[in-house]
Design a binder for these strands. Structure first.
Length: 582
RNA sequence: UGGGGAGUCGUCCAGCGGCAGGACGGCAGACUCUGGAUCUGCUUACAGGGGUUCGAAUCCUCUCUCCCCAGCCA
């Protein structure tokens, strides 16, 4: 990670940038400038501050890579801090998954794991200070009344009738709030700012609310909890954060962030906002992802169709590919939607270099080699990874009865189709040339159920002594030796690039792609895969990258298709079909 | 109609007064025992109008469009 961008001295000197350095984003530019100006003692200290109320997704990965990446690049530090100020929504299950996901992505917070709830006592003290300064008051308005008093986007708000309570009264009331004397929703502590502000966040925002709820860390110790704006900035301050990076929807919270820290006269980090990630054909909001999980549109948070870190991981994505994706999408402030094709490019690029190749037939079509002796079999040498010779070779059994892919045979082939067809000769990868001499059809349906072929014994290993060229090379598997496997094919979770696009009264869930999961149960795979372990990634030659799913058990292999290979033929076929239509 | 942001190839990101560049996608070709990978080439963009300037994507100005904000969520 470190040497991709300009490397900076901690004291602000910019080192010569490596030749392959990417241009720095606007946030890194700001930080470089801060270092140059010797602000924050020339330190760089960021933080990733998730609320433990859901699983992390690829949008969070962008933020994680940004925050931890900046710390690495500038020789600084990045904390992991849980923003756990709302006990009604947060659970330990989520903090565990978040920690695991961040580690899996390849980042380390060392001993700097913090919780906003660690600071509850200090936060309370700060609230007291605000009250004493006359900058906060206990308000008895109900939630509905607070809303009414707030005004609207275009009309100013009205001041609460409780706004001018004395410091003593406020102090006593706030202490009694903490003591549990009042029911939920009956009172709040509010900052006294400006009910006429054009920025609604400044219209006397609530900073403490009463919530008689058990917190996953503090238990029943508290029945009042601080709001985000109050807790977040102060947590940043307490931790000595220099640059508090968040998404653009918090831009109009910044004046409030600054207000609290100024009023309290404490160390004051700088908040910087960037645009959150949008990805085509999926949704990236915790609320919507929860709906998909709870509505059983997917099997869980780690369903391989989910854009969650856990989902991508189970799908077969590597941490490297995700980090690389985050580098390539860049960081800016404008709204944008990244192509899924870029994510797919990143995982192909990574797996092409590291995934061992294997032959698997997804939709088997039986092939009988008429001139190959019955009962005979031989072992063919196959290369594990042409991109990486050090990965060696393996043996693949060959025999008289084989399976090839249904798609690799056409009884009546279009001109550009150069795979197997009656009378045609093709190469079986690492094996022999075979020629189709006939087909066997199902009497009822007329469907081709078996292909008859002859082989040329001179072509063993895949080369013809007479030098004749063969255009097509097919993957195959020996019927008698191969293993059965289940393969799960995934496609976009949604039919529309933007599932939120308003279709009169339609909900995003109505655009879920019914074909997003297609399960193939009778696939055949090389016998060498017998002991493939869950999580292992392979390239199924000519098809794509696949990963062993944890649903696998002894004798029952289940694979997830991570991504297809680039498929030129599929493209040709598509344009062929379109031409036919018009 | 209040406040805060943002507009550059199809998509994402650079460019910060001096030839608009990279990546992904797309198209074409080379090569190939994966129609994979690799390599080569091509394609297309400064929201609009005025101004300042020898020179504007960049500075000024007006306009248009898009996004966010009315939780005791974060």
């Amino acid at each position: 990670m470190k040497d991709r961008r300009e490397a900076k001295d901690i004291d602000g000197g910019v080192k010569a940038s490596p030749a392959d350095a990417q241009p720095a984003d606007f946030i890194r530019n700001i930080i470089s400038e801060d270092i140059r100006a010797k602000r924050y003692d020339s330190r760089v200290h960021t933080r990733f501050p998730p609320e433990p109320n859901g699983y992390l997704h690829i949008g969070h990965a962008k933020s994680i890579c940004l925050n931890f990446g900046i710390a690495e690049d500038f020789g600084g530090l990045c904390n992991l801090r849980f923003d756990d100020t709302n006990p009604t929504k947060e659970e330990v299950e989520y903090v565990d998954s978040i920690k695991e996901n961040v580690h899996w992505l390849g980042f380390d917070w060392s001993d700097r794991l913090y919780y906003a709830s660690d600071y509850f006592e200090q936060l309370y003290e700060s609230a007291l200070q605000l009250i004493k300064k006359g900058r906060a008051y206990v308000c008895d308005l109900s939630p509905r009344e607070i809303r009414e008093y707030r005004g609207t986007l275009t009309e100013p708000g009205r001041e609460s009738p409780y706004r001018d309570r004395t410091v003593e009264e406020n102090l006593s009331l706030f202490e009694r709030m903490r003591a549990g004397e009042f029911p939920d929703g009956s009172r709040t502590l509010r900052a006294k700012i400006d009910m006429k502000s054009g920025n609604l966040n400044m219209r006397d925002p609530v900073i403490y609310r009463i919530l008689h709820a058990a917190h996953h860390r503090t238990g029943d110790k508290w029945c009042i909890y601080p709001m985000y704006d109050f807790a977040h900035g102060l947590s940043d301050s307490i931790e000595g954060i220099t640059h508090s990076i968040c998404t653009v929807e918090f831009e109009d919270h910044r004046p409030l962030y600054d207000w609290f820290l100024d009023e309290l006269e404490v160390y004051h980090p700088r908040q910087i906002e960037f645009a959150r990630l949008n990805l085509a054909y999926t949704v990236l909001s915790k609320r919507k992802l929860i709906e998909l999980v709870e509505g059983k549109y997917v099997t869980g948070w780690d369903d391989p169709r989910m854009p969650t870190i856990s989902g991508l991981r189970r799908r077969g994505y590597t941490p490297e590919s995700i980090r690389n994706f985050c580098d390539r999408i860049g960081v800016a402030k404008r709204d944008s939607t990244v192509d899924m094709a870029l994510l797919e490019y990143c995982i192909r690029e990574d797996l092409n270099k590291r995934a061992p190749r294997v032959m698997a037939v997804l939709q088997p079509l039986r092939v009988v080699i008429e001139n190959y002796p019955e009962g005979k079999s031989e072992e063919m040498d196959a290369i594990n990874n042409p991109e990486e010779p050090s990965m060696g070779t393996r043996k693949v059994p060959f025999s008289r009865v084989l399976y090839i892919e249904k798609d690799d045979f056409r009884e009546d082939p279009p001109k550009q189709f150069y795979r197997l067809a009656p009378g045609r000769e093709v190469r079986l990868r690492y094996a022999y040339f075979i020629k189709c001499t006939g087909v066997v059809k199902d009497e009822q349906s007329g469907e081709v159920v078996e292909i008859r072929c002859t082989y040329d014994p001179e072509t063993r290993g895949g080369d013809a002594p007479d030098g004749r060229k063969i255009k097509a090379t097919l993957h195959w598997v020996s019927a008698g030796h191969s293993l059965e496997a289940e393969v799960r094919l995934y496609d976009h979770l949604f039919l529309k690039a933007d599932p939120d696009e308003a279709g009169e009264g339609r909900d995003f869930k109505s655009y879920v792609n019914p074909q997003s999961l297609v399960t193939l149960k009778s696939c055949r795979i090389e016998p060498g895969m017998m002991h493939a372990a869950a999580g292992n990634r392979y390239q199924f030659e000519r098809q794509g990258y696949f990963c062993v799913d944890p649903d696998s058990s002894k004798g029952r292999l289940v694979f997830n298709r991570t991504v297809t290979l680039r498929d030129t033929w599929a493209k040709i076929e598509k344009t062929l079909k379109q031409a036919k239509k018009s």
